[in-house]
Design a protein around this nucleic acid. Structure first.
Length: 485
RNA sequence: GGCGCGUUCGUCUAGUGGCUUAGGACGCUGCCCUCUCAAGGCAGAGAUCACCGGUUCGAAUCCGGUACGCGCUACCA
């Protein structure tokens, strides 16, 4: 197994969306596969008919693809190990369940839900383990045949021998041991003919030649059951790696209640896939150096399973925001222009057209001031249209009652310029400052407010250049008149 | 309750017996830069390494126990 090229899988159940915890699991599988020239498989564990969600598989796949996690085998990419939807593999599981029954390693159980309920309550009252009492294990061949013939509903249970120690090595946590005494006679095949997770998972991992099972920590307690199944079927046990959980700020398991958990939520909020992937990669893993900014190729290069942490990690939005800004700023101008055009569609300026050259100027002015591309349309709205209003009182109060007069002079000077460049506006303002014997600040801050309506933002001359001479003059003059009134 | 896993600044983490006055990052504060706001640079606050005991000349690092948190304990995954 050592020299085998790894085959790993992400095996979600289709709940309707890709959970960020699932994304992290998928990512680690993907990185491990790519790093080791292995194969990354997507398998859909849709064995719970009660939880069927329309369109869930498509949604899952599109979220995965959006993040750049392309799988080598899976739905729509049938390899030699398909199908990759467990609901399409039902006869396989039944065969193995029956095989185990023949070998006396599993048995038919006809107990009703009611009897199981009563039994568990009794055991719990006595302070014992709420396990199945093997009631049906002792049924004779005749009794079983009779019940089967009469069409009585049944399940198939694993026959767990008591008094054994089940041990396995986890790549992240080391050796782990369980006593078989605490393991229930797990149902393998449900009465509706579907397998449970445990059976389907083990059968498929074996049939699909999975070498490394990389999954969430919530499966750690079930692993001895899986080990027993591998043993019962006479199969080699894959390597296990149980990943730490993703947590809410209060350290409970990450849940919908306390924020967004779906990848599509983050996508629709305008997060870059690069940032989301980078962020989630760092939740439970580190290369050991101080590097925190990664693109996918760098992650593949740096990733290793033995540097995955044991403890759960809180999903911290602040760091995600920071990473988003970092990734945004690392993009090339053509990429940024493309992103800006895309976000135009959902902005207040949808339908308008702007030249690439203008967008370039705007990006250069706004990029260090935003964490999301769409914030350019929001925070920089005055670059595209005159501010709805600005408060002349603010100018008067912060500067002087004379501001109106100054702005009027400034407007005249700006208007007199012939195809001015950025420096020409600056020179013009300097000239006005001399003429009127006022400090720059007395002009430049009112100018900023007149032209943008807000106190912060890009350099004021940059703003003027972007909106253009005519528009700038118009806004300054309007402000001047409003103040003077 | 039982079983399992975990526990280093608010958060993500470095650290595998002496290099550690426990390092980095996000966030926070201040300074510099500056027409503003950011970005950037610099500085600072912030962790008695959950607790108790043991091993050792020496422990965040090894061992034992306790506490707390989380997971599992379904014909859900």
């Amino acid at each position: 197994m050592i020299n085998e090229t790894p085959r790993v899988r992400f095996a979600p159940s289709p709940t309707g969306y890709l959970h960020v915890g699932g994304l992290r699991t998928a990512l680690y599988n993907y990185l491990f596969a790519r790093k080791n020239n292995g194969t990354f498989i997507l398998r859909i564990e849709d064995t719970d008919r009660k939880r069927f969600v329309e369109g869930a598989v498509e949604n899952l796949i599109s979220s995965l693809e959006w993040c750049g996690l392309t799988y080598d085998e899976g739905p729509g990419k049938e390899g030699e190990h398909g199908p990759y939807l467990q609901s399409e593999r039902l006869p396989i599981y039944e065969d193995y369940a029956l095989h185990l029954v023949e070998q006396k390693k599993a048995y038919y159980c006809f107990c009703t839900a009611d009897r199981l309920d009563v039994m568990r309550k009794e055991i719990e009252k006595g302070g014992g383990q709420p396990k199945y009492d093997k009631h049906c294990f002792s049924l004779s061949t005749e009794e079983i045949k009779e019940k089967l013939d009469s069409g009585m509903p049944y399940v198939i249970r694993l026959n767990v021998e008591p008094g054994k120690t089940i041990a396995f090595d986890d790549m992240i946590r080391g050796r782990i041991e369980f006593s078989s005494d605490v393991i229930d006679d797990q149902v393998l095949l449900k009465s509706d003919g579907y397998p449970t997770y445990h059976l389907a998972n083990v059968v498929d991992d074996h049939l699909m030649n999975i070498t490394h099972v990389i999954r969430g920590e919530e499966w750690l307690s079930s692993t001895p059951k899986h080990v027993m199944l591998y043993n019962a079927l006479g199969w080699e046990i894959p390597a296990f790696a149980h990943l730490p959980l993703l947590l809410n700020p209060d350290r409970s398991k990450l849940s919908k209640r306390q924020g967004d958990v779906a990848v599509e939520d983050y996508r629709s909020k305008g997060f870059l896939k690069d940032a989301l992937v980078n962020f989630v990669a760092l939740l439970g893993w580190t290369a050991g150096d101080d590097k925190e900014f990664y693109n996918m190729n760098e992650l593949i290069d740096a990733f290793s399973l033995d540097r995955v942490n044991k403890a759960g990690a809180v999903f911290d939005l602040q760091k995600l925001h920071w990473l988003n800004a970092e990734h945004l700023r690392s993009k090339s101008m053509p990429e940024l222009t493309e992103l800006l055009k895309e976000s135009l569609l959902t902005s207040a300026f949808a339908g308008n057209h702007y030249s690439d050259d203008m967008l370039k100027q705007i990006i250069e002015a706004m990029l260090p001031r935003v964490s999301f591309i769409q914030e350019i349309w929001q925070n920089g709205a005055y670059l595209f249209a005159a501010p709805e209003s600005y408060d002349p009182a603010v100018i008067k109060k912060r500067w002087t009652d004379e501001s109106g007069k100054y702005l009027e002079v400034l407007a005249n000077h700006f208007e007199a310029l012939v195809s001015p460049a950025k420096e020409d506006y600056e020179l013009a303002l300097n000239k006005v400052s001399e003429e009127l014997q006022v400090q720059h600040a007395q002009l430049i801050h009112p100018l900023r407010l007149a032209v943008s309506g807000v106190g912060g933002g890009p350099g004021v001359y940059d703003i003027v250049v972007i909106i253009g001479q005519a528009e700038a003059v118009k806004r300054v003059r309007k402000a001047a008149q409003t103040i003077t009134k």
